[in-house]
Write a protein that binds this DNA or RNA. Structure first.
Lengths: 143, 143
DNA sequence: GGTCAATATTAGACGAAGTCCAATTGTTAA
DNA sequence: TTAACAATTGGACTTCGTCTAATATTGACC
């Protein structure tokens, strides 16, 4: 994602542009995601937002993230059985997942071509294609 | 996967071939997965195994599935935030996921080419690449 | 067979992630 | 100010999965 500077004002505009009423908590949650351009889980986001002093509840964090998803402001990334990651980057891209550390990094989709995919079943439409490359440190003997 | 017939005897052999001591419960769990060639979740497997009369506990189902995973008898498929699917097909293949119904189907990897992938970071090795095509019924107006 | 050690299984307590609900608070507009 | 709606909240609850400590089963050796 481009090195865009996000502050509370342009985030409020961004929320409005997606049909989301920019409340204090929503702006803080958006700020947590967009200011650092990382993949965060719900509890990480809550920890960031409440770091200085309590600003939001667990229910609001989940409500808000689901609202953001629905309005396509963010995406969810499902690679870890334990938690969902929320991804502020909605441009076409895939992921590399370090199964050891849990670290998730983006792979730009621009250069990637996938050929030989079967046709979609009749009456179905694509929601999207996810590619995840699972990697681990090469240390030690492979088991 | 080939139309292979699995019975309790050759499943016991298959377990042994993967270094797994074939106990009664393990054979039943393997049978649930391999006889129908589907993607099942832990609770579905438990329901199948205990259908006629109680044969195994929740703890054993989870222990056994994790053992099977570790011994690479099966794979896990992470597409649904709520549950893990276990996949008896360990040959190279990808998945199509109907987000509406939760149905998961295999896509043979033989025909598929992916080009333009970035090099792996130094000191990392690939565990594998997952591709998931998310689809939904085309009904109604898209929202 | 019997005995011992190692391996499996189990019930149920526990934990983490996420949802739900009913009560409260905040906002808007007349 | 008040009515109506929207947003937030604490806390109970659900679901999926793990852990633990006790019991049962197995296998190897005599």
């Amino acid at each position: 994602m481009e090195a865009m500077q996000y502050n509370r004002e342009n985030l409020a505009d961004k929320l409005r542009a997606h049909g989301i009423n920019p409340t204090h908590q929503r702006i803080e949650i958006a700020h947590a995601l967009f200011s650092r351009c990382e993949h965060l889980s719900a509890d990480q986001i809550m920890a960031i937002v409440n770091e200085r002093h309590s600003e939001t509840s667990k229910a609001t964090v989940y409500n808000t993230l689901n609202l953001f998803l629905e309005k396509k402001l963010i995406r969810e990334v499902i690679v870890d059985p334990n938690k969902i990651f929320y991804d502020p980057n909605t441009s076409a891209h895939y992921h590399m997942y370090d199964v050891e550390s849990g670290k998730l990094t983006d792979i730009d989709a621009a250069d990637i071509r996938v050929t030989g995919l079967p046709p979609l079943p009749a009456g179905m439409v694509t929601e999207g294609m996810d590619i995840v490359i699972r990697v681990r440190p090469a240390d030690f003997l492979q088991q």
